[in-house]
Simulated scan of single mutants.
Amino acid sequence: MSKVCEICGKGPVAGRNVSHSHRVTNRWFRPNIQKVTIKDAKGHVRKANVCTKCMKAGKVTRA
């Protein structure tokens, strides 16, 4: 499954875990992507990978 939102283009971002003793390890911050049924701009019903922030903000018209 794709890790990129089809509405806003948000994708994974690299970062670092820093422990209490300041040991540093690499990690990923991944957006919460869900597959939902939407109506696109032409009015067609289709499935899309959308992040939950776009769903909560109302950027998606669900079918």
Rank of each mutant, 00 (worst) to 15 (best):
I7M: 04
M55T: 01
H20Q: 07
K42G: 15
V36W: 05
A14D: 14
G15Y: 06
V45A: 02
C51K: 00
V60D: 05
E6M: 06
H22Q: 15
V18L: 04
K39I: 02
K47V: 11
I33P: 12
N32W: 07
C8M: 09
K35V: 15
N49I: 04
G43T: 07
T52G: 05
T52F: 01
I38V: 12
I33N: 07
K35T: 15
T37M: 11
R27E: 03
R23D: 14
R30L: 12
T37W: 05
T52N: 08
H44A: 11
A48S: 13
S2G: 15
V36T: 07
G9V: 05
K3L: 15
K35Q: 14
N17S: 00
C51I: 02
W28V: 02
R23V: 12
V36I: 00
V13S: 12
G15M: 11
G43I: 10
C5T: 06
T37Q: 09
K56L: 06
V45M: 03
T61Y: 00
I38H: 01
T25D: 12
R30V: 11
V36D: 00
N49G: 09
A41P: 06
R16N: 10
A63G: 04
I7K: 10
C5P: 14
G58R: 00
I38N: 01
H22E: 13
K53L: 01
C5K: 06
V50L: 04
N17K: 05
S2W: 06
V4I: 15
K3Q: 14
V50K: 03
C51P: 07
C8S: 11
T25M: 13
S21D: 13
W28G: 04
V13R: 14
K10T: 09
G11C: 05
